[in-house]
Design a protein around this nucleic acid. Structure first.
Lengths: 254, 254
DNA sequence: TCAATCTGTATGTCCGGACAATCTGACTAC
DNA sequence: GTAGTCAGATTGTCCGGACATACAGATTGA
């Protein structure tokens, strides 16, 4: 009786383009990821062993391993010594990226709207100065925005940026997200320190978000760093919990 | 004039033990991480190039690269082609592990106390059955706990576990965290899907947490999976936002 | 003086091979 | 029948080398 579980990668049309500037391991990992996403590689199915896979593609084993390893790091695959590599059963979505509210909403097909309330330069308060690592009372950008979905206010975003980092055009801020603008300005986002909490809305906050005074609000504070370690953004956000919650997938560090 | 910035790894007493079963790259990465943690490798300092470092340690370059890469993945180092590898400036704490409230509190030196309110087997509701991937009305464990710090209630934790996974001893639940018990039972935690929100406390919830009815509560729902993709835990937690908030560091996926 | 070009350096990618560690399944002995 | 043992399969680790690519600083030219 033939084994019902044959190497599913043989039916996959895997191929690499050596003339492309895209690294070979990356080409392979993308194709495998697409196959998992598409369902061609079903959860629990075993990939053929690395040696054979390398031979079939005309690659070396280290290259194939690098491709597989990147997917293991993403949580899509699990390796077992003596057994093989298989697709994880659970549907992993995204391992918690450093995403902006704008991107989140757009991904959900919500077509977010933004209203810029404030876009100016102010002296840094002690709190802002400490977060951004600049001198107190030195100039920093201050941007205050209201994010709406379906015409309803969803969140109030207050951000501070160090001076000289980038131009903050109000029109651009109304049509796209802050992170996207920063990336476009050549800033490489690296890490962020976040704090998520809740509190009762003040009268002012309630007015802004069309809630009642004392209604629960979801709060988020974040300092974002670029790859040189500079703080490039400090934000204090409040969300309407009936309209928004933080959802993310996270992996165990190994 | 000599360059003020010399390779700081030469002063480091790096060495590897080839007779040890611990992989060489792991020995090296641990020593480097300790040096960064300890401050011997100061932020922004450049590590000597990989070739020389490999030669000095009697290792091959791929092995040294593997050690460095693991620290890059942790966000402790940054590589720049043509420049070198340097320690990041910002103080990276932890890249958001899959941690339990118990561990969080203990790390903060709070000596948490736990009171088990419920520890029984119940038929799975539709919500629980969907989260755990079991049949509706099939038996599942239900654990309800109250977590206190400094004698004050801090969070209410309601968890569901599939049957046959592990024993749930009330005494053990009162002295340690659920995740720790699961790991001790040989379960390899792999990933989790979380949702953090806020809402107003019902009268029942307010009573449990010594809050007022309608007070803001921080809520968290989580489904945890092991490395085979099975759902091993589903939890619905409520926190007092004046006593607790979620803080974490996260890295940009590259 | 300033801009374009060149050059050295360091990491990025890739190869082919070797041996060790570990898991599964089958075989054997009791 | 059950437990222990063994062999095959597969990933884990490590080596040594080769060339490509990108960045920084020095050099050269306008």
């Amino acid at each position: 009786m033939p084994k019902p579980e044959v190497d599913p990668t043989v039916q996959l049309e895997l191929s690499v383009d050596r003339s492309s500037p895209v690294p070979l391991y990356f080409q392979l990992s993308q194709q495998l990821e697409a196959a998992i996403e598409h369902g061609t590689l079903t959860p629990g199915s075993l990939l053929g062993n690395e040696i054979e896979l390398a031979a079939r593609l005309g690659l070396s084993r280290p290259t194939v391993r690098q491709a597989i390893q990147s997917l293991v790091d993403k949580g899509l695959l699990v390796r077992r010594r003596g057994v093989g590599t298989q697709v994880v059963h659970s549907q992993v979505k995204r391992p918690l990226e450093l995403s902006s509210l704008y991107d989140d909403l757009e991904a959900a097909g919500q077509r977010p709207a933004t209203k810029v309330l404030v876009n100016t330069v102010v002296p840094a308060s002690a709190e802002v100065a400490a977060a951004l690592g600049v001198a107190e009372d030195s100039d920093v950008h201050r941007v205050e925005r209201l994010r709406l979905a379906h015409g309803e206010p969803m969140a109030h975003l207050c951000n501070f940026l160090p001076p000289g980092l980038m131009d903050l055009d109000t029109d651009q801020l109304e049509t796209t997200g802050l992170y996207r603008l920063m990336r476009a300005a050549g800033i490489t986002l690296h890490s962020a320190r976040q704090s998520i909490g809740a509190r009762a809305a003040t009268t002012e906050e309630a007015d802004r978000l069309a809630e009642e005074t004392g209604a629960p609000l979801l709060t988020m504070q974040r300092v974002t760093f670029d790859d040189t370690g500079r703080a490039v953004e400090y934000g204090t956000h409040t969300y309407r919990p009936t309209r928004y919650s933080f959802e993310f997938q996270l992996l165990v560090r190994t």
